[in-house]
């Protein structure tokens, strides 16, 4: 395949940045999107130009690093995949592909397609954990019984990889799907109950502080989420937040 790429180039956080056109040739349809980007970067390096900076790590859909906004969608046109799992067969020979960084005030661009998602870490630090000393004190897994239903739903919520596609896709740059998943993962389990009130309050407060927008229930996040995190998690977070505030 021969493609035209329109890529956001920005030399550092303070640079104004602009879209730049590139051509790549002989791209195999079996390549992943990131492999296609590697081909481009090799080309650029051979020409003595600055390669396009982009985040990636596992390249198998589990780390959540590969943030790219491709043809107007987070992680591109395919469903339930990250950019590293997106195959070039989703595109046609001769296509023009627009590639931008995830955009949100809370995700400032560091360079080219790389954004700082530290805001997610700070939200996690605000309460996305349980304070139990498990080293050397591991209990029998069956000591606390958990219903299959609750265990499944908690597991589903826990599959969130913190990629930020929800924020990138939301017209309001809202982080509620991410925070909803992180709150739900504990809210559904007995181990999460002890700190439930503080957890949801602190995580929501941190989310608001970071400058994310508000959820308007468009559902874009759920559609674009590579892990299929459900909107139900936002509704659950809302319930948790209300009851935490009523309890004081």
């Amino acid at each position: 395949m021969n493609l035209t790429l329109k890529i956001w180039r920005q030399s550092d956080a303070n640079d104004k940045g602009k879209m730049v056109d590139y051509k790549v040739t002989e791209i195999s349809e079996h390549m992943s999107f990131l492999e296609m980007m590697d081909v481009l970067n090799e080309q650029l390096i051979n020409k003595g130009e600055e390669p396009v900076a982009f985040d990636h790590d596992c390249r198998e859909g589990i780390c959540g690093m590969c943030s790219m906004f491709i043809n107007g969608e987070a992680h591109g046109p395919d469903r339930g995949v990250t950019t590293c799992q997106l195959h070039m067969r989703m595109f046609n020979d001769g296509d023009t592909i627009t590639i931008e960084p995830f955009r949100a005030k809370a995700f400032p661009v560091i360079k080219d397609l790389v954004v700082d998602r530290g805001a997610f870490d700070r939200i996690q630090h605000a309460g996305g954990y349980i304070s139990v000393n498990t080293s050397g004190n591991t209990q029998d897994a069956n000591a606390t019984l958990i219903s299959k239903h609750a265990a499944d739903e908690a597991m589903d919520a826990a599959t969130c990889i913190g990629c930020g596609a929800c924020v990138a896709s939301c017209k309001n740059a809202s982080a509620m799907l991410f925070v909803g998943a992180k709150v739900s993962q504990y809210a559904l389990l007995p181990q999460g109950q002890v700190e439930a009130v503080d957890r949801v309050k602190n995580m929501v407060a941190q989310m608001d502080l970071e400058g994310f927008g508000n959820c308007t229930n468009t559902g874009a996040c759920e559609v674009e989420c590579p892990k299929g995190i459900s909107l139900e998690n936002i509704a659950r977070m809302n319930r948790e937040f209300l009851s935490a505030n009523v309890k004081g």
Partner: peptide, 19 residues
């Protein structure tokens, strides 16, 4: 608030694909 949460807009945004 929602507008201010994304200062720089996308050059290409396919909203119809997901909402």
């Amino acid at each position: 608030r929602n507008r201010s949460a994304r200062v720089k807009k996308y050059a290409k945004n396919n909203g119809a694909a997901n909402s």
